[in-house]
Design a protein around this nucleic acid. Structure first.
Length: 467
RNA sequence: GGCGGGGUAGCAAAGUGGUUAUGCAGCGGCCUGCAAAGCCGUCUAGAUCGGUUCGAUUCCGAUCCCCGCCUCCA
């Protein structure tokens, strides 16, 4: 039985889908005005893992991940670059898709762009106005009246009285309450035409929060199972979504709220505003995508993780152990990369693995099972165990490659020898060994080692891998 | 100031009221021409101070420290 930590109730709860066998999940995506960084990679990989595990658990999942393609930063960046908003956002949507593919992510079932749903947002704001939650402020912006919504603060555990809106940032003039947030922003003369849509309140553009309420209800219905995102979205973004969606539609909005922890650098949150970020492509230039996935999944999704080369190197070493184990097992027809392997969930390792994953997606524990399995295989366990290892790895999108390919993959930053060059050296060494010229054979091995190529003599001959 | 999450061995990271987490690194051994890989063995834990308990890293309280949210942020 799957249990998930629900941010709304602050406890792990048994997961019960609204519709048996089906899961509808909405995850807040990215604002497209710059390259994605490792923090984005984390939420992308975490909810990719969640989707895969739900599917492995025989749920039919509808996964929606949105794209925010209109906001202040986008408008500003487009102006700085002297390009249209659409040019800017199209480019970064394309980059996002490239990064997602490079990370080996499943495509979401829907990837809605906010600007394609302006009409739905307008009608939702109209409903909120009719229901008495929205008002037109003195500056003509349409705002949400937070105090009218009884449940405000239930997700973030904050009480309206304790919030200190305006303490750090000036409060917009004309709001009835400093905590009220904008639903519809009135256009100003300096705003580009591209950022204006007509509405009952005049030309303008939507506030940030309304897009997720409008798009989720459009694509998943007014009430759905899981809503996810980074922990920094819990307040105010997700709190405001609840206020909007439950204010517009009577009844519950989301059953389970999931929030992933941050990626840190030197114990500080990695973020665009702090400027301490590494883009996904920068990291992938140095590390294999599977190593990055392994690094992320090695920690529980709610825990913070620190990014550093040392940790990525460590992850690579650890993952290599699993691949080395698989390499030593003779491949059968089933070990090919084609098609998912079936899993015997009654086997002891699979049971442990599933128990871990069902316990709020405890991937560190699940991965520990993988290592126990590898140890057993290395000890001379049955060859079928290698199938189990691969099949369980598959549910995390790990261990699906030819071990040789993984172990010999060249980091882009290394201008090492070609495979052919290495094979030639190995042949030369074999000849030296045959004539028992160990000085020469060791010299060759040391030379290769110096450029990061490790040789291993096995009964089947010499193999190599990258250090 | 309010709210929330943490402090586990050299590093990373889980579970757990009593029995080996796991990985990387280290040390000893086996294997090897020598290595590597692997196997066997092994050393470094649970911020501090109290309490509950036959027994606490695990429960309770206090203290110290770190991080996050309260502003755009995954």
């Amino acid at each position: 039985m799957l249990k998930i930590y629900n941010s709304l109730t602050r406890q792990k709860q048994q997961f019960v889908p609204i519709e048996p066998g089906r899961v509808r999940m909405y995850v807040c995506g990215v604002t497209v005005y710059d390259f994605c960084h490792l923090g984005h990679a984390r939420f992308l990989l975490v909810f990719d893992m969640v989707t895969r595990w739900l599917r492995a658990s025989d749920y039919q999942v509808t996964y929606v991940r949105n794209i925010t393609d209109i906001d202040d930063k986008i408008i500003r960046r487009a102006a700085e670059n002297n390009e249209t908003i659409r040019e800017l956002t199209d480019r970064f949507v394309a980059h996002l898709d490239e990064d997602a593919a490079a990370l080996g992510l499943l495509a979401p079932d829907h990837q809605p762009r906010a600007t394609d749903y302006i009409g739905d947002m307008v009608s939702m704001i109209t409903t909120l106005e009719r229901n008495g939650y929205a008002y037109v402020a003195a500056n003509r912006d349409v705002c949400y009246s937070v105090r009218k919504f009884a449940g405000y603060g239930k997700l973030s555990g904050k009480s309206i009285e304790d919030l200190r809106a305006g303490e750090r940032v000036d409060v917009m003039e004309g709001k009835h309450d400093p905590l009220d947030f904008v639903l519809w922003k009135q256009s100003k003369d300096i705003d580009p035409v591209e950022a204006r849509w007509s509405s009952p309140w005049g030309a303008g553009r939507p506030g940030w929060h309304i897009e997720c309420s409008a798009m989720s209800s459009k694509l998943l219905g007014n009430h759905f199972d899981i809503h996810g995102g980074g922990a920094d979205l819990q307040f105010p973004h997700h709190e405001n979504e609840i206020a909007q969606s439950e204010g517009a539609h009577a009844g519950a909005f989301v059953n389970v709220w999931m929030h992933n922890g941050f990626v840190r650098v030197d114990d500080e949150k990695m973020s665009k505003s702090l400027g301490n970020f590494f883009t996904i492509r920068e990291v992938l230039a140095q590390y294999d995508a599977e190593v990055v996935r392994f690094f992320i999944l090695r920690a529980h999704y709610r825990s913070p993780i620190n990014y550093s080369d040392v940790h990525l190197d460590d992850a690579r070493q650890a993952l290599s152990r699993l691949y080395i184990c698989l390499k030593a097992v003779p491949a059968t027809s089933e070990t090919g990369t084609s098609g998912p392997l079936s899993i015997d969930w009654n086997s002891p390792h699979a049971q442990r693995f599933r128990a871990a994953m069902d316990d709020d997606f405890n991937t560190p524990e699940a991965i520990a099972v993988l290592f126990d399995l590898a140890a057993e295989i290395n000890r001379g366990g049955a060859a079928e165990l290698a199938q189990v290892l691969r099949a369980l790895g598959a549910t995390l999108a790990l261990l699906q490659r030819d071990p040789q390919v993984f172990l010999q993959a060249t980091p882009v930053t290394v201008d090492g020898l070609s495979a052919q060059g290495i094979e030639a050296q190995i042949a030369a060494r074999a000849a030296a060994k045959k004539s028992r010229d160990f000085v020469e054979s060791d010299r060759i091995r040391d030379t290769l080692k110096a450029v990061g190529v490790l040789l291993e003599d096995t009964p089947q001959g010499t193999t190599w891998r990258r250090a």
